[in-house]
Amino acid sequence: MTNSLLEFRNLTKRFGGVTALDDFSMHLNRGEILGLIGPNGSGKTTSFNLLTGIYPASGGSIFFDGEDITNKSPRKVYEAGVVRTFQRSRLCLPLSIYDNIMIGDTSRLKTGICANLLGRKAFRKQYEETFEKARSLVATFSGNLADRMMEPVGALPMIERRRIEICRALISEPRLLLLDEPSAGMTHDETDQLMTDILDVRARGEGLSIIIVEHEMGVIERITDRCVVLSYGRKIAEGSYAEVAADAEVQNAYLGVD
């Protein structure tokens, strides 16, 4: 068994003539927090979409915990223990906070027809258990929200929605969490608070690995163990934040060449 939880081997994705991801190889160690950074359009979200099975890869392969999960369906990837948040919030706005979080707990819910329509006692038991669990998870992010579990998410401000989205991802106790620009649309302080909360949850469980896509370099510097930098679909640098920040090619990619 290798030490890496996730491995991209020569991953390539082409959309027609555009090569969004070009021969991208990288790995993620167990328990690591990896920052995936790069200018807009450099292939960060695309790699998330390939990893979670939303897009098929044009070439290369993805290994999760030693198993080839290239082009597996989103469901299989979720069952393997990979969950994500989205760049643009993808919550179900008319549904309650509790409902939205339960969408993330599919693997544990009993979804048989008889179990749901006839065995209401057993259903109720599971409902009550999951309610408490969801509520205590939400409470780590915001005590205020924990008392409003039955209110629709659509009525909440952006920061609260992002918290719910992260709770939805964490409720199934995943092994790998993919965060796609968690700071988008939030203030500096809000982002800071959110990161603290995520680290808190991570510290309680065992060995949650995180890949974070982020433009806010303060966040990357603060929480990542290691960074991978993409530009035009290619990996141009890898190393600690200080190392990649000092890299000449990275500076060119972000700031342009004088």
């Binding site: 469901r75 994500r84 919550l91 339960m102 993330g104 599919t106």
Partner: peptide
């Protein structure tokens, strides 16, 4: 029975599929 269906995980999954298929698929529905 329709009410029970709505107020069960089946109904929840139906709503999830209606509102956002991609997100629903990413959470194993």
């Amino acid at each position: 029975f329709v009410r029970r269906m709505e107020r069960s995980w089946l109904g929840l999954h139906m709503d999830a599929v209606r509102l956002d298929e991609t997100a629903a698929a990413c959470f194993g529905i």
